[in-house]
Design a binder for these strands. Structure first.
Length: 560
RNA sequence: UGGGGUAUCGCCAAGCGGUAAGGCAACGGGUUUUGAUCUCGUCAUGCGCAGGUUCAAAUCCUGCUACCCCAGCCA
């Protein structure tokens, strides 16, 4: 039942939904029941993660239950693949749904009986208007609609027609079942909304049993009622469906009366969170798939190395309100770094290798140094082989020795530098090839400086990471950056695709990693010191060909 | 336009008639064998605008303005 420790429910901000719940509880409500109701027509993204946290988190906070229910009322868009992925995502985030997974399709028989009930009560009718005609009859904002000519069929005729729709006698689009409400309502949702439409598609749960499928409106509230959901939390765009939601609850013999509450969708800048756009990015191969690390899908974030804790902490930091705002990506990144900084093992990886020869260290000798796995937490130590030939990052060396010690805390000729977890060295020489490119840097180590400060006058300019050229291993590193280079890819003229960052992905083949890293289990996150956080790829990483994905860089306050 | 919703620091946001919480970002200082972490400090005489009620208004009233959503046999 308890999905996460109470520790994080404590820091969850209170919100208007919780206020309502506390009131309900005081007035005698027994148990809070919520639900997360995805449609299995795509992969879940960060926006769904927030909804998951709100629904499961709210149930947890009040010791209630949260169902996972697939809103599978439209077989032409839905697939089993998505059902499976969504279950995986919810579990990965660390939540457990109450009982079995539910499906709207579990209740199709009941819905059908309820449709017959509405017909008998004179509250529903079969309408033969074409989609185009129906649209005309619906009217517009300022103009009331007109009653359908089929509005006054007898109950018998309606019952017969509905049954024949069900068994497949009519073509798709030829008839629908509509509620008889008010064609002049200022709320368009009340202008005789559609209850059932003909769809001759195979359904992933019910196969070919049905030729008609209920609309969202005719299903959602009833599903909630059947499951005993007390607080049906959804996003703002459903606010004007609420009167309809309640109309069904009062006109149908439902076993309970849930209430709907709406909150604002989560938007984050520099990304898109719309299933349609995500699908387009995938279908048109702008990304490698639904789990591309640049996508805000849960599968993508997972592959990128974002942790479930980080995603959850971020979602919990967000308020549940009715404002439609855009959250700064920086706020999300804060929680990613926070979690990784606390928990990721430290390691060294040279992304852009430059050979460093320690001229006063014997060839062929290997000195095994020991370094802490984490600088602050007790996470043990790891072994680092130190040899005569090492690799350092090309960016950590500059042959201009006049660079100020304050501004350039890296290696320059004649000056001192600390090798992380090893010796202080002094650059003595460099070797260039015919084109003038530096191929080697020579240096000598200061004896006795492992874990000790160097003698007076040898203070290092800074600290740099390194890997043994002979004992280290080669690795592939995939570097990801934001997929869009503008804050709001959606805004402005032209397609959001025009705002794709062409440099959002690059792969570096010849990186050098400390040898222990080849044993990393896929999906293990590390901090490559001074570079950022990286994760062993969920699918492609192996001891033979280590593959790491850049999750996010270190915070960098270094001003030029 | 008819209906629905929302406006408080660059971003998110608390506030529920008693004199503007917090987080992110930013900017300064300290510690540091990661330019990381950690730590200390600064950051709204102001709450979309204009009136009004009140001893007292971000909170109540009136009138504006801006933005978002609906007008699918999608959810």
């Amino acid at each position: 039942m308890s999905n996460n420790d109470a520790s994080n429910t404590a820091k969850q901000p209170t919100n208007f939904i919780h206020q309502v719940i506390e009131q309900d509880l005081q007035q005698g409500l027994g148990k809070v029941v919520t639900r997360f109701p995805p449609e299995p027509n795509g992969y879940l993204h960060i926006g769904h993660a927030k909804s998951i946290c709100v629904n499961f988190g709210t149930a947890d906070k009040y010791s209630g239950e949260c169902n996972l229910r697939f809103d599978d009322t439209n077989p032409s868009k839905e697939e089993q693949e998505f059902v499976d992925a969504i279950k995986d995502d919810v579990q990965w985030l660390g939540f457990n749904w109450a009982g079995e997974v539910r499906y709207a399709s579990d209740y199709f028989d009941t819905f059908y009986a309820w449709a017959q009930h509405l017909i008998r009560e004179g509250n529903a009718y079969v309408c033969d208007l074409s989609p185009e005609e129906a649209s005309e009859y619906r009217g517009w904002a300022t103009t009331p609609g007109k009653d359908s000519p089929f509005r006054n069929r007898t109950a018998e005729e309606n019952l017969d027609l509905l049954e024949r729709m069900k068994v497949g006698e009519f073509d798709e689009g030829s008839r629908v079942l509509r509620a008889k409400i008010d064609m002049a309502s200022p709320n368009m949702n009340l202008r005789d909304p559609i209850l059932y439409r003909i769809r001759k598609a195979v359904h992933h749960q019910t196969g070919s049993k049905w030729n008609i499928y209920p609309s969202y409106d005719f299903a959602h509230g009833q599903e909630d009622a059947i499951e005993g959901v007390t607080h049906s939390i959804c996003t703002l765009e459903f606010a004007d469906h609420q009167p309809l939601y309640e109309w069904f609850l009062t006109n149908l013999p439902v076993p309970s009366t849930p209430r709907q509450y709406e909150f604002g969708r989560l938007n984050i800048n520099y990304t898109v969170t719309s299933k349609r756009k995500l699908k387009q990015l995938v279908d048109e191969n702008h990304v490698s798939g639904w789990d591309d690390p640049r996508l805000p899908t849960i599968q993508g974030m997972r592959r990128r190395g974002y942790t479930a804790d980080a995603v959850r902490n971020f979602c919990d930091s967000l308020a549940v309100s009715k404002t439609d705002g855009v959250v700064d990506m920086a706020q999300f990144e804060f929680f990613i770094r926070e979690d990784l900084n606390d928990n990721a093992a430290r390691a060294m990886c040279v992304l852009n290798p430059l050979k460093l020869v320690i001229t006063n260290f014997p060839e062929g000798q290997v000195e095994t140094l020991s370094a802490p796995v984490h600088p602050q937490k007790e996470m043990g130590t790891r072994e680092l082989p130190f040899t005569r030939e090492l690799y350092i990052d090309r960016n950590d060396y500059n042959e201009d020795s006049t660079l100020s010690r304050k501004k350039f805390k890296k290696l320059v000729p004649g000056d001192f530098m600390r090798l992380r977890g090893a010796y202080v060295i002094k650059a003595t020489d460099l070797v260039k090839d015919a084109t003038g490119e530096i191929t080697e840097v020579h240096a000598e180590l200061i004896p006795g400086t492992v874990g000790e400060n160097p003698p007076e006058g040898m203070k290092p300019r800074g600290v740099m990471h390194w890997v043994s050229a002979t004992e280290g291993k080669q690795a592939v590193v995939r570097v990801y950056d934001r997929l869009f280079n503008v804050e709001s890819p959606d805004k402005g003229e032209g397609s959001f695709l025009d705002n794709i960052n062409p440099e959002s992905f690059s792969q570096i083949e010849n990186c050098w990693i400390e040898p222990g890293l080849v044993d990393a289990a896929p999906e293990t996150g590390f901090q490559f010191e001074r570079e950022g956080y990286f994760v062993a790829d969920r699918y492609d990483h192996s001891a033979e060909t280590p593959v790491f994905n850049k999750t996010i860089g270190l915070r960098d306050t270094w001003k030029k």
